[in-house]
Amino acid sequence: METFLQVLVSGLMLGALFAIVSVGLTLIFGIVKVVNFAHGEFLMLGMYLVYLFTTKLGIHPLLTSVIVAPLLFVAGVATQRFIIQPLMSARDDHIQIFATVGLSTALINLALLLFGADIANTPASGLRTPITIGPVRVLLGQLVILAVSIMLVIGLQAFLKRTQTGRAIRAVAQNRAAAQLMGINVNRIYMLTFGIGAACVGLAASMVAPLYPTSPNIGTYFVLTAFVVVVLGGLGSLTGAFAGAMIIGLIDSFAGFYIGSDVREVVVFGMFLLILILKPSGLFSNRLSLSHVSP
């Protein structure tokens, strides 16, 4: 029983980690309608920045988010402005896919050039302190991630619902042409959204870095799971992504414990494929050709 509880809680903690990495991805996915294959590399960049700020300047990792999130916001805006925006009107998906795949490849190898293949360890600064609650143990940093991921989802949700800019973002996602007719500068909304999405992983980086060793490939590790989460939760749905992250976290944790840690990924990706194939509704709403079905 105790083991079960421990596995359960570990799963939830893992879920919170996936959630905080996925939130930005689902935002970009749902609104700009671009699959950002470089999302994991934004996280990786963020983690290296956290590493640099903590080791070189001695800032507490959590505090670095104040600098790292804005920096990634700028990186996101620049990516949208200079890479995605010129390709928005491209008819073929492959153009956009390759653009972000190329960016991802470039960033991974840039990190390899700058930092080498060795692992960079960000000081834990107390975040790896174990906390015992009844029969289960968690790390302080994991609780922080859980708290922040919940606040992030609630905060973003409120922003999208209650502010004029937030509503404009949703309007653009639902009907780009109509949004233009309302006087919304669609390109600016896309840049803003991409920036926010990237800033989210900047925030995530400051919490992930103290717990996980940073390496050039760390992004790939996280982003594949983040894609699973986003698809599971439904495109662009923040609460969906959060729920999806929790489900994947639990599956990962239980599969790792009861089936074997070396095949837990098979379970996670197997589920991903099942969802993609069996529950396609809502998955390609923006690309489905409806031109021959006029009501």
């Binding site: 190329g102 960016l103 991802s104 490849t105 470039a106 960033l107 991974i108 190898n109 840039l110 990190a111």
Partner: peptide, 10 residues
């Protein structure tokens, strides 16, 4: 290390 990948990506 990584240079050729960086060039590929760019």
């Amino acid at each position: 290390l990584g240079l050729h990948g960086f060039v590929y990506g760019i």
